[in-house]
Design a protein around this nucleic acid. Structure first.
Lengths: 113, 113
DNA sequence: CCAATACTTAAGTGGATGCTTAAGTATCAT
DNA sequence: ATGATACTTAAGCATCCACTTAAGTATTGG
């Protein structure tokens, strides 16, 4: 049930376009807070708040050296969210396949008119 | 950039445990609104509101026949969200691989002591 | 030392979210 | 026709969200 809260936080973190832009930037490599903020048309405190959300989800980690905080992506958490989606999608798609098989089988039974 | 709004809605829809439970139920097969509501400890209007969120994202579709509304999962929208995550994760993991390669190469240069 | 840099904290605001209860509407069964 | 069933709409409410500005703190370069 702890996994549910992790998924809550991860999907919530990814539901905002600014945060996805930050993740996209960080997936090209580490960046400081101000580097993350540069392309965004919002204040630095707003960027900090988004960063907190991303860190709370575990998607992003950061560490401060001197006055610079450097951030990077943590792919494991992304994998968990990805897997949740994939499992539901697979389940539904297999269900559709089984339905198709059943319909095919039923159709061929009626082939001998 | 229409895709961004679709991702907003999809990830937002998945960020709630009640809605994920509904998706999980629907990935086993179609269900009516009251079937969806049965295991949930919330009122029927609340279930409706969650359903609206899921439909707005495109994850779920529904149609009413008589007085029963039947809902089902739409796997394409799930795939898009899944792909967004996979792309970022891959990018970061490849970056780490390249870094490892670089470190290996640098290490072997210093092998001739 | 002192000013610039790089965050960080705090407080406030408008709007979205998730829930409720109450009161509908449209079928279906008798 | 009438009651039960299956939603559906509406209204209200507490909380959360994304953002702002203002005022910090901690490093670093001159």
């Amino acid at each position: 049930m702890q996994a549910a809260i992790a998924l809550d936080r991860t999907f919530h973190a990814l539901s905002d376009p600014t945060r996805r832009a930050m993740v996209q930037r960080l997936s090209r490599g580490p960046a400081s807070v101000s580097e993350l903020a540069k392309p965004l048309a919002i204040s630095l405190p707003a960027v900090m708040q988004h960063l907190h959300v991303l860190e709370a989800s575990g998607i992003v980690r950061s560490a401060k050296v001197g006055r610079v905080r450097t951030c990077h992506v943590e792919p494991k958490v992304l994998s968990q969210a990805e897997r949740w989606i994939a499992e539901r999608r697979d389940q539904w798609e297999r269900k559709l396949d089984r339905l198709a098989d059943y319909l095919d089988a039923t159709a061929s039974e009626n082939d001998n008119t």
